[in-house]
């Protein structure tokens, strides 16, 4: 079984994000970037499937600028076998990403595509679902457990009311949630091995995809600063404040 793992280069989750002065987007200058944490979970799952003998090959794919190669190198150091880099500078929307991934799927013919449920930069939560739609494949979203064998995959989904277990026919697209696993960090020997693993380069044109954005960002703003709290002396005062100041009751 072959697993394809799309990974995205995003602002590191530890960075305090700031909006650019002209409010056209988030300031990316000299900001630490790393692999989307949900994609790390996807890579970890693919590597575990390999280690358990459930998968034979894990291929990482990333769409983005030259530096996305570092993100792919991280996936290779975690245990992916090889990588594909679709080189693209500038904005990419989920639909364009899904179309390019569909193109890569056409070439690679994996049995499973495992990716993060969303990327922590735009929080769109669309790519996996769109990919499944474009391919006409089964999809399992918000997955917290995966059990794949003999052409079928059983997944546990985190839904609002609790956990839902579904059986999917393969090939399938899985988008993974936080509790699926705890991703490893690379060991020194695996970092050394990753150096020798192949990263194939492609362009959106190779995949025949038009990446022109369809959305126009008007303005990006910081969330309003949280106001400090206040102590009340009595229940009566609390009710009064909720009624007259906050206007919620």
């Amino acid at each position: 079984m072959k697993v394809l793992v799309p990974v995205k280069r995003v602002i590191d989750y530890n960075v305090k994000v700031r909006v650019k002065a002209d409010r056209t987007g988030v300031d990316l200058a000299n900001v630490k970037m790393s692999m989307n944490p949900f994609d790390e979970i996807a890579v970890e799952e693919a590597v575990r499937m390999k280690e358990a003998g459930a998968a034979d090959e894990a291929v990482a794919v990333s769409l983005g600028p030259q530096q996305s190669q570092e993100t792919l190198r991280t996936a290779l150091a975690m245990g992916a076998d090889r990588a594909i880099h679709v080189v693209h500078d500038g904005e990419l929307e989920p639909l364009a990403v899904a179309k390019m991934l569909a193109g890569v799927v056409g070439e690679e013919a994996p049995d499973l595509v495992i990716l993060g449920k969303q990327a922590i930069d735009d929080d769109a939560n669309q790519t996996g679902q769109m990919l499944s739609g474009l391919l006409g494949w089964s999809q399992g979203t918000f997955v917290s457990k995966v059990d794949a064998s003999d052409g079928a995959v059983r997944v546990v989904r985190e839904v609002d009311g609790g956990l839902e277990t579904v059986a999917l026919r393969m090939p399938a697209v899985l988008t993974v949630d936080l509790r699926l696993n705890e991703p490893r960090y690379a060991s020194l020997p695996n970092i050394m091995k990753a150096r020798k693993k192949e990263i194939a380069r492609k362009t959106p044109a190779d995949l025949g995809v038009d990446t022109t954005p369809r959305l126009n960002t008007l303005r990006v703003e910081e969330p309003p600063k949280r106001q400090g709290g206040l102590k009340v002396g009595s229940v009566a005062e609390l009710v009064d404040k909720l009624h007259n100041d906050a206007g919620v009751i």
Binding site: Q69, R73, T74, A77, Y185, A186, L188, I191, A194, R195
Partner: peptide, 15 residues
């Protein structure tokens, strides 16, 4: 290098 970046990350996590 990419490799050195990864090694620094690994040592940082280890620490």
């Amino acid at each position: 290098s990419e490799e050195q970046t990864l090694i620094v990350e690994t040592v940082r996590r280890f620490v």
